[in-house]
Amino acid sequence: MDTNNKKVNTELLNEILSNREGDVSDVLRIYDQLEPVNLDFMTGRWKGYEIKTGHSLDGMLVPSGWYGKVFKSPEEVHPLVFFAKNKTQLYAVNPKKLSMDVKVPNNIIGVLMSLAKPFLQTKKSGARLRMIEYRGKATATMQYDDKPINDHFVKIDENTVLGLMDKKGDSPNFPYAFVLERDNESNYQIKF
């Protein structure tokens, strides 16, 4: 892979992916070396995991039951999709009803998400995709409808992207990092 005349440091990339953590400067360097993606590339269902960098949101997704994201079209994106209690079904959450500024202890966040499911669940999309320039390149970016947050994606391979969450008020040099893996073949039931 070669983008902007920068060779991707595959050893560092593989280390970050296998450990699911890394120094934020290394994650940003890898992001800058990877190719941008277009809107069509993002269509589908994606399972995610975080890359721990010391961000304030680190450690919240797994215990909350987060599954990933679903991109039906550029205008219909479900940015927060979670596992139901039985782990065989998925449901979308209305991002407007979640606070990203409240830190909940990891040992109770899953219980709270399960109890709040009837209140949080939605069939409406909560985001859209646009091509937006970030860190010097235009790439597919998910914009939340009701939050000042953009998730920017770059291509690791045909079925994997690195995402950086750019939240208004956060340092541009310390975004929340995560990976999405294409998951169009799984049997999880989801109702939109």
Rank of each mutant, 00 (worst) to 15 (best):
N184Y: 04
S114D: 12
L90P: 08
F71D: 04
D58Q: 11
L17Y: 10
G126I: 03
Y188S: 06
K72N: 12
G65H: 08
M131G: 11
L115I: 13
L120N: 04
S186F: 01
L98I: 15
M165F: 00
M142Y: 06
M113V: 09
G48C: 02
T122W: 01
K168R: 13
M42Y: 02
N4S: 14
V154R: 13
P63G: 03
V179S: 03
I30H: 01
V62M: 04
E75S: 14
N150T: 09
K155M: 09
L80W: 12
V27N: 04
N94W: 03
V24K: 11
D101P: 07
Y67M: 02
V37C: 03
Q189F: 10
Y91F: 15
L57N: 07
P79H: 02
K6V: 14
K85T: 05
T139L: 07
S186H: 09
L162H: 06
V154E: 07
N38E: 11
N5Y: 08
D40P: 00
K103S: 11
N94I: 02
R20H: 14
T88R: 11
L28K: 13
V104G: 03
G169P: 04
N184R: 03
Y176A: 10
V77C: 07
T88K: 13
M100H: 04
I108P: 06
M165S: 09
P79N: 05
S114W: 07
N19D: 14
W46G: 01
G68W: 03
E15H: 11
M100F: 13
V102N: 13
R135A: 12
E133M: 10
A138D: 11
N187Q: 13
G136F: 10
T53I: 08
D183N: 10
T122A: 00
Y144Q: 01
K123A: 07
T43S: 08
G68Y: 01
I16M: 08
T160L: 02
